[in-house]
Nucleic acid binder design. Structure first.
Length: 267
DNA sequence: CTCCAGGGTTTGC
DNA sequence: GCAAACCATGGA
């Protein structure tokens, strides 16, 4: 179905801004997955996009996945200093995806001390090894593994996905969710500070990963994760100070503009 | 070969 | 409380 989107919406920038690891852009078409759903999106010009889904699925899943109710153009213009003005302008088109909570948690535990291509490789191997093969029409893909599937995985099989020392972290997170000790959906009712603390009780989840999960799966846009690249920006352009908290609910979006910008203008 | 990657935990002071 | 050592692995 054709969807008109007048606000910022660039498929390549959304996909390759480092917030997600399974979607990809190929031959002018973006491919996204969410749980057992798959979606292709093509830009047709004139603010019009072809979504390969029904109206019902668009409204129940993809509209919130792409955060389409938020006005990014107005947020982008709130950048105050010259660095963030440049970053926001360069990154125009990025949106913060609201991704599956368990997938985001596991993916960002894996992300520590890995390059983005290496993260993508590990996540894809996990899906092929433990994900349910899902067929939609003539198309098929591997869904991200369920907590139950990962909770009973063996150390050696997980290690074969290139997870290294993170294997016990993945198991701890999966067992906590599969056992019901953690209900990731119910955690959405917590305040930012409470959710932050709850996530950090999982092994391998520190400040940065917790903030990434909050921003990319719980839509807590006031969270601005500080990784090595954001730290370099703070050291280079802000005398070591953090420029993001002042943007309050837009802090995470500004952070994502900065991250995408610096990835493409490495110092 | 060496160095680094969207960090976190453990240890020592 | 903070700083430093340590962690597996793939890619440049």
């Amino acid at each position: 179905m054709k969807i008109k989107i007048s606000d910022d919406f660039n498929l390549e920038k959304i996909i390759y801004s480092g917030q997600c690891f399974r979607p990809y852009y190929y031959d002018g078409i973006g491919r996204f997955t969410f749980q057992n759903h798959i979606l292709y999106v093509e830009f047709l010009g004139d603010c019009t996009y072809d979504f390969s889904c029904s109206k019902e699925e668009f409204e129940s899943i993809w509209s919130s996945y792409f955060d389409l109710d938020r006005d990014y153009a107005s947020i982008r213009k709130k950048a105050k200093d010259i660095f963030l003005k440049n970053a926001a302008s360069f990154s125009q088109g990025i949106r913060i995806l609201k991704q599956d909570k368990f997938e985001t948690l596991i993916s960002f535990i894996i992300s520590q001390r890995k390059s983005i291509p290496a993260i993508r490789g590990s996540v894809e191997k996990l899906c092929e090894m433990y994900g349910e093969k899902t067929t939609v029409g003539e198309d098929s893909f591997y869904a991200f593994p369920t907590p139950e599937a990962l909770a009973k995985a063996s150390d050696s099989d997980l290690a074969s996905c290139g997870l290294g020392y993170r294997v016990p972290y993945i198991l701890d997170a999966s067992i906590k969710v599969a056992s019901g000790e953690y209900n990731l959906e119910a955690l959405d009712n917590l305040s930012d500070d409470e959710l932050f603390s709850a996530l950090k009780e999982i092994k391998g989840v520190g400040d940065k990963v917790a903030n990434c999960v909050m921003l990319f799966a719980y839509a807590r846009t006031s969270r601005a994760p500080v990784d090595t690249w954001i730290q370099k920006i703070m050291d280079t352009y802000y005398s070591g100070n953090n420029p993001f908290p002042q943007y309050k609910d837009a802090a995470g979006i500004m952070q994502q503009y900065a991250f995408y910008y610096i990835q493409n203008h490495k110092i």
